[in-house]
Amino acid sequence: MLAKRIIPCLDIQNGRTVKGIRFEGLRDAGDPVDLAQHYALEGADELVFLDITATHEQRDTLIQLVQEVASVLDIPFTVGGGIRQVSDFKTLLRAGADKISVNSAAFNRPALIREAADAFGSQCVITAIDAKWTGERWEVYLNGGRQATGRELYDWASEAVSQGAGEILLTSMDADGTRDGFDISMTRLLSQNLPVPVIASGGAGSIADFADVFTLAKADAALAASVFHFGEITIPTLKNALRAQSIPIR
């Protein structure tokens, strides 16, 4: 049976991880390559590197980092952040990324998804969507939640899939950072209605949150950052607990 995936996410700036990370026994917790290996050994099913670098010059650092990560990592990894055109996909895939996550640029020009899927296959095109509850519906936000679009979540997600997105990475702006759990209803909306895998993100605080997002929200994968980085939940502990609840886990 296909396993539910546990995906740690690393925020990268200028080739370094930026969120405070506390691990014992790591030489350099700010080194994404060391961290990536650490997570792979612990049993992470995939990794996501989110580049929050703004400037063009620093993109070269990212490419170099992707090459280094690819040379040591033997699980799939995704790179996202600042992807604007098909040539960005090409550069990062060549450097060794397995999948590319695209957000605002795809929203502003959905044909980018189609072009990338045609060139490299849907399996490597993830559309990342940030959404927020307005009191009536979930609305898509851009630029890390700063810019409202007025567009309803499912409407955009289904267009992204019809353009060729192979996977949706869905972040709840309401839940992100709260550690109160994933947004179950919002995740369900997509996982129950889209024909592609859905990665739930935002709000992970406890092992029960992961169990809920898999069993109640039917997510295919769950992504989290700080609970893993701060060592509050280790991946082996999490996986054992989920297994004990008969959730299929690698």
Binding site: M1, L2, A3, R5, D45, S122, Q123, G166, E167, Q192, L194, P195, V196, P197, D220, A221, R250
Partner: peptide, 12 residues
């Protein structure tokens, strides 16, 4: 069962 395509992930 509304199974997704592609088949993506770790399977036995």
């Amino acid at each position: 069962e509304n199974i997704r395509i592609p088949h993506m992930g770790w399977n036995t």
